[in-house]
Design a protein around this nucleic acid. Structure first.
Length: 584
RNA sequence: GCGGCGGUCGUCUAGCCUGGACUAGGACGCCGGCCUGCCAAGCCGGAGGUCCCGGGUUCAAAUCCCGGCCGCCGCACCA
């Protein structure tokens, strides 16, 4: 089992100290599910808060957050394409166990398209044509449907099928119009959501990296496809940021500045690039050096059905090499179009021009009386079609043939007119395009955990970036048995709690042992109450990473801690600022 | 889903091949006591185990056999 490799040590620590472990342990466990323990929950919460800050709060003029249900009616996932393209007919070889897409196999062997056939029919075709395993020649089993969507039933009616969402996106698309209007109908608008999703993976593995149920942090950023520059008003914030991008088909990943990547067409849209740059900053701030990440462009066959360009943000981890921590897709208008079609609702937006524009429009005018007399009940259809024809085409037809032909009806030249009218247009309607950055939260929790892992001699330290550490400060009376020190320590502990710090009080064991315990769960600050505290009301603030200590008056402690944790100030600077007497 | 390897106190592990003095041993951690003026010190005591689950073989199973579950690795899968 666990050897002495890094991964084993990490998992052992995660379990022992209460960060995370496989779920349902006492029942033998179920693959693909993980529990988060007390410190795991805190770590995840801080990572989520950080994501909120980076993606939502810092763009709050444009980005909002919503929350939508986990269970959705089947129509939603029919519209999104998941019911169709998440379901594969699969057939297994009974001899070697290899699995194949049944439809692909039949098409390959017989050259016939069997799309839409039932599994029973496909099984019959395989039997009748003696199709065997392409690898070992063994007999194939029954064709079965496999869908990665978790299926359930809404209410007591069996026909009412519900699915667990496999991504958050559909929630934002379905609610798009409402949110857009509530936010005063402005484009661009980002709609973010953080929540749980379920995917019934065939064989989840790799601990928390591939789960059947997990938390996603995702944004759908809706833009005007005709306004490239205006879509990303904050682009300049990431000016000059370098990203390593592995283009599809390229030998190696290369460094590009954001501007280069956009102007050279490596990234097809500025917004896509901008959010990738933010993503890079975000993952860096979880403790991953820039050198240990890159963006990988997915090829057409690896992309999801809705995407015209996708990049995966990859991070290097000890056990599995490069793993995906976020995905960045240009989804175009695929989703909104589909939902328009399936729901029958208008999900377009209207964007006014600065001034209404007068445009000359050519229109096809058909003599209604003529058509009505000659075609009676077919007239409405014919009229509708005739008037939707392009005026230029009509003009050409009239010139060449002397009549136009629609739905089999011939309308002679004298009953068709092309007129030019002036129309006032105050804006345009369009279906917004969507840029989507999407993060697997649990993967990022694991990554932050792994990157925090340090060994110092035979001691283990979780060197989390200070602002994501689950516990922010430990309060320690120097000696276990001194009642006065303990009383003072309790008071200080309570004060830090009152200031909102997640704090631990610990008075059992030697001071060294307690520092070690504190380091092992990654607490950045240890506050020690010693005999000098009783004299001059100062305490020591110990830095988890350097083991250095500064002396701070208790009256300044909360503020000093704030600078230490959230502004990441070095200890020396903190001491200078909050204990001026000390510098001599 | 296939193949390989594995599963023993909270954690790491000894024992398994060669069945029985195993009432399953140790270390770390945890709890209590003594000690302790700054980096896992020491001493004493304590709690803690469905030996993954089910079945079989046997007088006797942690140990052998079969099935399942879970984990890791390879293959397949991963909109």
């Amino acid at each position: 089992m666990a050897g002495d490799d890094k991964y084993s040590k990490i998992m052992e620590l995660a379990r022992r100290r209460g960060f995370f472990w496989p779920s349902y342990e006492i029942y033998g466990g179920v693959a693909g599910f993980y529990d988060l323990g007390p410190y795991g929950v805190l770590l995840k919460r801080r990572i989520i808060e950080k994501w909120r800050r980076f993606f939502i709060h810092e763009h709050s003029e444009y980005v909002v957050e919503i929350e939508t249900p986990i269970v959705g009616p089947s129509r939603v996932y029919e519209a999104s394409g998941h019911v169709e393209s998440f379901t594969d007919p699969i057939v297994a070889c009974t001899k070697c166990g290899r699995r194949y897409r049944a439809d692909h196999l039949i098409e390959e062997k017989l050259g016939v398209n069997v799309e839409g056939l039932s599994p029973q029919e496909m099984t019959r075709i395989i039997r009748e044509n003696n199709i065997t395993c392409p690898a070992c020649g063994g007999p194939l089993g029954e064709v079965k449907l496999f869908n990665l969507l978790f299926k359930t039933q809404i209410g007591p009616y069996e026909g009412s099928i519900g699915y667990l969402r496999p991504e958050l996106a559909q929630g934002m698309f379905v609610a798009f119009k409402r949110v857009y209007e509530a936010m005063r109908s402005r484009i661009p608008i980002g709609i973010a959501q953080i929540g749980r999703v379920g995917r019934n993976e065939i064989s989840p593995r790799q601990a928390m990296m591939r789960l059947r149920e997990f938390t996603i942090m995702e944004m759908e950023y809706f833009i005007d496809p005709e306004d490239r520059e205006g879509s990303c008003p904050f682009l300049h914030r990431m000016e000059g940021v370098k990203m390593r991008i592995h283009r599809h088909g390229a030998e190696e990943a290369e460094w590009y500045t954001l501007e280069e990547a956009i102007s050279e067409g490596v990234i097809i849209h500025p917004c896509l690039g901008y959010w990738m740059a933010v993503a890079q900053r975000f993952v860096e701030s979880l403790g991953v050096p820039r050198e240990n990440m890159f963006f990988e462009e997915k090829g057409p066959e690896e992309r999801a059905h809705y995407s015209s360009q996708t990049f995966d943000q990859m991070v290097k981890v000890s056990r599995w090499g490069w793993v995906e921590v976020s995905g960045h897709s240009y989804r175009g208008d695929f989703d909104l179009s589909r939902h328009m079609k399936y729901s029958g609702q208008d999900l377009t937006v209207f964007k006014p021009y600065p001034k209404p524009v007068k445009v000359k429009v050519r229109k096809v005018i058909v003599d209604r009386a003529y058509v009505g007399r000659n075609y009676k009940s077919r007239a409405p259809e014919i009229l509708r079609e005739a008037q939707s024809l392009d005026p230029d085409t009509v003009e050409r037809m009239l010139e060449e043939k002397g009549y136009i032909e629609v739905s089999g009806a011939k309308i002679p030249r004298e009953h068709v007119k092309i007129i030019e009218v002036e129309e006032k247009v105050s804006g345009r309607r369009f279906i917004p395009h969507v840029v989507e950055p999407s993060f697997g939260t649990d993967r990022n929790v694991y990554v932050a955990f792994e990157y925090a892992y340090r060994e110092k001699g035979d001691r283990v330290i979780l060197a989390f970036p200070r602002d994501i550490a689950p516990i922010q400060a430990t309060v320690l009376p120097l000696v276990e048995k001194d009642e006065e020190l303990k009383r003072k320590a309790r008071t200080i502990y309570q004060e830090l709690i009152n200031h909102g710090y997640t704090t631990i009080y610990d008075d059992t064991g030697s001071i060294g042992r307690r520092y070690a315990r504190s380091d092992e769960i990654g607490v950045p600050a240890a506050i020690t109450i010693d005999y000098q505290t009783l004299e001059d009301d100062t305490v020591t603030l110990r830095d988890r990473d350097t083991w250095k200590q500064a002396r701070i008056p208790t009256s300044n402690l909360a503020q000093a801690l704030h600078d230490f944790i959230y502004k990441n100030k070095p200890l020396e600077e903190i001491e200078k600022q909050y204990n001026p007497q000390k510098q001599s």
